[in-house]
Nucleic acid binder design. Structure first.
Length: 204
DNA sequence: AACGAAGTCAACCGCTAATTT
DNA sequence: GAAATTAGCGGTTGACTTCGT
């Protein structure tokens, strides 16, 4: 039998849309006591006429302690750009390396700010390249700038010259540590225009 | 001041993966 | 091992706000 869709197993009409302060309070109170698990029961026991998914999302993106909101710093932006280049649209992984930021926030920030920025940069890059073609020079180093996207989807990074399991390689299970060592290591290497294979062998 | 376009962000949806029974 | 349930992810939507005319 196919798994039931969502958790809307009952015919009850659930609340949708923006959360009220009262709902927030109930949810936070419940989680404080019982912990953040079994979202379906959280919803019913806490007296929230919401589906479990909605509760989970609200907690993770808004009510959870230590959430940073707004004002993404230049450093954070830079990190997002670089991580996205490495990981693609794997927002939760990117968010995991930015303490206090949520995947939803980063995804939104990317879609509304950074993607445009990148498009703009690519255009200017293309223009300058077009001018350079008058004097054909060094071969196009590939990657940089034009790969964008397509990292997401499955659990692997597909670059022209590299295909590996990101989770396996970087051990994202080290939750909470926010260890940025590997990122820094990678990003240092990224400064050069070396290809991914070189990066990996260097990290190893 | 009014109105439409563009931008932003919270929340929902559909799906897969992981876990439990 | 199979089925059911739960958790989590990324894409998308829609309400609200800001900006330009």
């Amino acid at each position: 039998m196919a798994p039931k869709k969502n958790d809307g197993s009952t015919k009850r009409i659930m609340n949708k849309g923006a959360w009220t302060a009262e709902e927030d309070r109930k949810l936070a109170e419940y989680i404080e006591i019982h912990g953040a698990k079994r979202w379906k029961t959280v919803a019913s026991i806490a007296g929230l006429n919401r589906c479990g998914k909605s509760c989970r999302l609200r907690w993770l993106n808004y009510l959870r302690p230590n959430i940073k909101r707004g004002n993404i710093s230049d450093d954070e932006e830079d990190l997002i750009l670089r991580l996205h280049k490495l990981l693609g649209n794997r927002w939760s992984l990117i968010a995991g390396r930015l303490p206090g930021r949520t995947d939803n926030e980063i995804k939104n920030y990317w879609n509304s700010h950074l993607s445009k920025k990148i498009n703009h940069n690519e255009k200017t890059l293309q223009n300058s390249r077009a001018q350079e073609t008058a004097t054909p020079s060094q071969k196009d180093s590939g990657t940089e700038g034009d790969e964008e996207e397509e990292g997401g989807g499955k659990e692997s990074v597909n670059n022209s010259d590299l295909n590996f399991d990101v989770n396996e390689f970087f051990d994202f299970s080290a939750e909470g540590s926010y260890g940025l060592e590997w990122v820094n290591k990678f990003l240092e290497l990224d400064e050069d225009t070396m290809n991914y294979s070189e990066k990996v062998s260097n990290i190893i």
